[in-house]
Write a protein that binds this DNA or RNA. Structure first.
Lengths: 342, 342
DNA sequence: ATGAAAGCGCTAACAC
DNA sequence: GTGTTAGCGCTTTCAT
């Protein structure tokens, strides 16, 4: 059965070009050391045989990898798709490849994915964990694999990129107050995600600064449209005098679910319920009611995460030191119809 | 400077457990061959040292890979995010990892990505190329790397999963005709993508079956919201008697852009312009006007693609034969507000 | 400028 | 049931 087929190797190239494998390697990695005629001959043999470098062998021998691992909670959240896009663009231009994995917001999947990255001996990892993956992240760093956190720039142990979630929450809270709202709700996984907690804190400060205003916190497990729909049901159960007139959802996905819940129940947005989201994903602008949101420079954050990671990989291989640098970006308020008082 | 640090190897494990590396390998790959006491001792040593198998070395030696490459035009299109999700779910359960790359709808990027997969010696590839990547795909197959096409089940040279785009187009066309429309437009990259061409053909058949109905084809370069907005401008330039009253957009992303263009110009949807999209992405239901669409069983298609690929990988290693199997799924019409005549 | 040779960490065939 | 060994394809030092 099926001969275990050897792929074309440098040995074959060397044989065809009439040189040693060391010379082939030099053509690839240090062409200036090789005489022009030899180089041409070797390159000709490479083309003729259709040789492609075996990255596994290269990495095994060279001890460094051109593969970067990226861990996200879910890729069909456009926020993470965009972070990935920014990071991949940056890294691809520099000859690295990015290996994304979806943890589906499951902490145990996150551990499995990081195990896999470790086995692959990736050169570095970017991650946005929802669980307590910090022990695993520390483990990677011990093995000299740099880690950059996504959406998190306040951790002194790890490098990271993020935007100022407290300020974002403040912006959202002030905006709703400015629009005349007193009873406000907050929806998001505030118990689980530090980013969401910070957004909540910002909003709380804005609300507390305004006498007579109150904030009701609805804590969800996930950060998807379904969580928003459930929160909508919960809000609708409240009697009108107690029911919030405005809601701040900690992500646009949640906000879109909340909006669906409201319109399904026949409530008008923003007249009977104002809604503001977070992330300003592209779809927010084309939602049933165009969604106000807090914008993050997501694409640029992805690029910056990649840049920090490459910096750390260089540092570790040259000085043995693991740098810890965080970049904080500023969020902006984007006002659309969903919060505009008529 | 930085000692080039060896990672913990089976040799270290063997030394600590007081056995040979062959026995360590057996504990990992054929545990039944090893005495219970020895196995326990080895596993203890593995835990104590924090050893993790080096996949590069394993793959180099074993000649097979647990990494699967996946190439998509862009991941922030929820259709592809969902295909990825289905495939990854299936493969992860079976111990494989998926390496997705975004070609950004650029044919030259597609080639680079496939080169990278070849160098990585991935076990198989799933791809949805926008360019003529068929030569590269054939090259992979020659190297015994199975290829499964995504969104394409009509290619006799390659395995693939897809849905019946002709029927999908037919469904969309009939639906618009049924709603009383005579002047219909089609928007999509029909010159570039065979999937889109098939959807157009289906729609043409539906329209031609109805005397007095006509179809205007607006061919776009990309398949994103921007393409939809541009097409909207083009349609709006037409004098009212010639202007289509309904449009079939070859993807929901395009449809959402088209919808934005219409509402920006003050036209009411569906009263002045009916719109139907394709893919039924989650966001379609929560669009400014909930979007009618042609649904594909995307998640299941992703799983099926992964399943076909694993089957091919097994076949090639056991029989040396490369199977070519295609699975065709059926599309459904999903009617929402954007095409409902009041 | 080129060649010879060692070895990265692992698997698998074979010997005991 | 366990140990020994060859070698996957490559990079890199050291001779020449």
């Amino acid at each position: 059965m099926a001969d275990r087929q050897r792929s074309v190797s440098t040995k074959d190239v060397a044989a065809l070009a009439g040189v040693s494998i060391g010379t082939v390697s030099n053509v690839l990695n240090a062409p200036h050391k090789v005489a022009e005629a030899t180089r041409l001959r070797v390159n000709g043999a490479i083309r003729e045989l259709g040789w492609e470098r075996n990255e596994n062998a290269r990495q095994l021998r060279a001890g460094r990898s051109n593969t970067i691992g990226m861990l996200v909670p879910n890729l069909y959240n456009p926020h993470f798709a965009e972070l990935f896009h920014g990071a991949e663009e940056f890294l691809y231009e520099r000859g690295f490849i990015v290996n994304v994995s979806n943890a589906n917001e499951l902490p145990e999947r996150e551990e499995l994915i990081l195990d896999q990255f470790r086995r692959q001996r990736v050169g570095g990892v970017m991650m946005a964990p929802v669980g307590a993956a910090m022990a695993s992240a520390a483990n990677l760093m011990e093995r000299q694999i740099p880690v950059v956190l996504l959406d998190e720039a306040n951790n002194s142990e790890f490098s990271g990129v993020g935007s100022d979630n407290f300020t974002g929450g403040l912006l959202a809270g002030h905006h709703l107050i400015d629009q005349g709202h007193h009873r406000i709700a907050f929806v998001g996984a505030s118990e689980r995600l530090v980013q969401v907690r910070d957004r909540l804190r910002g909003c709380q400060v804005a609300v507390q600064a305004h006498p007579g205003a109150s904030l009701r916190v609805i804590s969800t497990a996930q950060m998807d449209p379904e969580a928003g729909r459930r929160a909508a049901e919960e809000v609708l159960k409240l009697d009108l005098p107690f029911r919030p007139t405005a809601v701040f959802c900690a992500s646009d996905l949640v906000a879109m679910g909340f909006l669906q819940g409201m319109t399904a129940a026949g409530l008008r947005v923003p007249e009977q319920m104002a809604i503001i989201g977070y992330d300003d994903i592209d779809f927010a602008a084309s939602a049933a009611v165009p969604l106000s949101s807090i914008r993050q420079p997501t694409h640029q954050m992805g690029r910056e995460a990649a840049s920090l990671l490459l910096g750390a990989m260089n540092a570790i291989s040259q000085t043995g030191e693991m740098p810890r640098i965080s970049k904080l970006f500023n969020p902006d308020l984007v006002v659309r119809e969903s919060t505009l008082r008529s």
